[in-house]
Design a protein around this nucleic acid. Structure first.
Length: 136
DNA sequence: CTTCTCACA
DNA sequence: TGTGAGCA
């Protein structure tokens, strides 16, 4: 699984993540404050998110939309420090897929996100950023 | 121009 | 959470 390095590789700044997750920078930073996500920092204290972070953000978003608060989300997402392969015993009412999505699913999901937020002039920018992930 | 932190409405 | 100030 050489994909692990790529999905954990921090590559996009908060601006791209905003468009990808439909969250505001405020929210993303807020969730980070509450340790729901732990983006990498680089150069001038700049946040760099990995695909793992984006997936996580999307899960957080869906939970928020379901009316779950920060505390509640913590209870569901916390059990993951770095490498928690299996051993993911969850409560029956938790359908959250913490297990990694297959590449095809991830790609499809991201493409939909991009297509949903299609705005002349900005799309090229986003795709340009993403191209870094697809190839390289 | 984009992101960051902090503080206040 | 939103928004704006003041930096980097």
């Amino acid at each position: 699984m050489g994909d692990d390095i790529r999905r954990n590789m921090a590559l996009f700044p908060i601006g791209i993540v905003m468009k990808l997750t439909d969250l505001t920078a405020r929210q993303i930073r807020y969730y980070e404050q509450h340790e729901l996500i732990v983006p990498a920092r680089t150069s001038g204290n700049q946040r760099l998110f990995s695909f793992n972070d984006v997936e996580r953000l999307l899960e957080i978003k869906s939970l928020i939309e379901k009316g779950v608060n920060i505390a509640g989300i913590k209870q569901v997402m916390v059990p993951m420090s770095k490498e928690s392969e299996e051993a993911t015993v969850l409560t029956p009412d938790t359908e959250v897929k913490r297990k990694e999505l297959s590449d095809s699913q991830l790609h499809r999901m991201l493409k939909q996100q991009l297509l949903n937020g299609k705005r002349p002039g900005q799309v090229s920018l986003i795709q340009g950023e993403l191209s870094r992930f697809y190839k390289k």
